[in-house]
């Protein structure tokens, strides 16, 4: 068996990103869409750490550190928004939140 190379890690990252995008496209529940967004952020993290490892440069890991921080802040605000929305409309489904649709 051959050692995992950069392209292997990039493949995993691409697969995770695609699955996250699939979730954003297909699912109707706001919470699941949010989880899919987290998946996509994680895919970017895997790519950055792999690049950092295989190019001998720690800057990629610093970038991931910042991404994780921003993602945590984003989740806090986003979930607060979802809760506020749910209080007003009693739903967390995107199909029912189509007031601005023509």
């Amino acid at each position: 068996m051959m050692e995992p190379t950069l392209s292997h890690y990039l493949m995993v990252s691409g697969a995770l990103f695609s699955i996250g995008l699939l979730g954003v496209i297909v699912r109707r529940n706001l919470l699941i869409i949010y989880m899919s967004l987290e998946l996509m952020l994680n895919a970017a993290n895997v790519a950055l750490v792999a690049m950092s490892h295989f190019n001998g440069n720690l800057d990629g890991q610093v970038m991931v550190f910042f991404i994780i921080t921003v993602a945590a802040a984003e989740v806090a605000v986003g979930l607060a928004l979802i809760v506020a929305l749910y209080r007003k409309r009693r739903t967390a489904e995107t199909e029912d939140l189509a007031t601005m649709k023509l």
Binding site: M35, A50, H53, F65, A71, V75, L79, V83
Partner: peptide
Amino acid sequence: LNAYFLAAVQILVYAGAVMVLFLFV
């Protein structure tokens, strides 16, 4: 990938904080 600190932070922040927030909501 030898990113030990990020591995720990990943578990603490995502599997810990973010997931608790998700389950709470």
